[in-house]
């Protein structure tokens, strides 16, 4: 066991960084679910696409440009997906939705391979964030601190929008009871569309943020999908609080599990998930109630 405090700070930051990356992904997925009862398995593919868009745009106009372009590019794809698939599948039941988006995963996997090739790409870390900062006596990469800060910022903005604005109240009303919300004169369909696009944009943003950290490969979306699903199932489908709680739990268990019990890290996660499902089938912070 490492007695050194610095070691624990370092691992704590690692856990937080992973949590924030997962939060960016899971919040979009979970709000889309809360509102539309729609689980989009292709959410991971949107993340991969965001990474590719950021890497490509970043090569031309620099990291910050890429970071800006990726969410819009992915949201634009989200519009297409919504119009072609999602809208028609709204009333089809969870199985058909799961399967259509399952098919989309493979379609988008091959499309990225056709467009960008099978070789891994990479996006450079911007010069501004290239160094390291000392925090609590520990040297930590500035870029990772940026990821943490961005995640927290997005969380703050979303909490503010959902909790304090009119559109947020409308979304909450839609999550609670969409037919009642429609009766109150809220254009539920328009709201769905808006939320879906924002969810896609957040997935794209997560991809863009992850690109300089990881390697950009066609299957990165498949790799991140299961952790994201675990986060939203633990946290409770449909709630912002659940997404942040699930992300933090996942990040901490995964990071410290990998360090302390390397053989059992992922078994630990699944064990935790099973326990949550048995004790609280709707997750820790379900949207309703």
């Amino acid at each position: 066991m490492q007695a050194d405090l610095g070691f624990w700070v370092l691992q704590g930051l690692n856990a937080l960084q992973l949590s924030m990356l997962l939060f960016l992904l899971s919040v979009g997925l979970t709000v889309i679910f809360g509102l539309m009862h729609f689980v989009n398995l292709a959410h991971g593919s949107l993340y991969a696409l965001g990474a590719y868009a950021a890497a490509t745009a970043g090569a031309a106009i620099g990291f910050w440009g890429g970071l800006l372009v990726a969410p819009f590019a992915v949201a634009a794809l989200g519009v297409v997906l919504y119009l072609v698939f999602i809208r028609r599948m709204r009333r089809a039941g969870p199985m058909a939705q799961v399967l259509v988006t399952f098919g989309l995963i493979f379609v988008m996997l091959d499309l990225t391979r056709i467009v960008w090739g099978a070789q891994a790409l990479s996006a450079p870390v911007p010069a501004l964030l290239d160094g390291r900062l000392t925090i609590l006596g520990v040297e930590y990469p500035a870029y990772r601190l940026f990821v943490i800060a961005l995640g927290l910022a997005i969380w703050g903005v979303l909490a503010l929008v959902l909790g304090r604005t009119q559109i947020g109240a409308m979304i909450r009303a839609g999550v609670d009871n969409d037919s009642m919300a429609a009766c109150m004169g809220i254009d539920v369909e328009k709201m769905f569309f808006l939320v879906f696009c924002v969810g896609c944009a957040l997935a794209g943003l997560a991809g863009a943020v992850a690109a300089p950290l990881l390697s950009v490969t066609p299957d990165m979306g498949l790799q991140i999908l299961i952790p994201t699903l675990i986060v939203i199932v633990i946290g409770g489908l449909g709630s912002l609080k659940g997404a942040i709680a699930g992300s933090l739990i996942y990040g901490v268990v995964q990071t410290f599990g990998a360090v302390l019990f390397p053989q059992f890290a992922s078994i630990l996660i699944y064990g935790l998930l099973a326990a949550v499902l048995i004790l609280r089938p709707a997750g820790l912070f379900p949207a309703k109630g």
Partner: peptide, 21 residues
């Protein structure tokens, strides 16, 4: 000595901290 889960590890941060210390 550290072996990380094959094709499942994306963040090597936790292991690097271990190597460092």
């Amino acid at each position: 000595q550290e072996f990380t889960p094959f094709q499942k590890t994306q963040d090597f941060g936790p292991f690097l901290a271990k190597a460092k210390s």
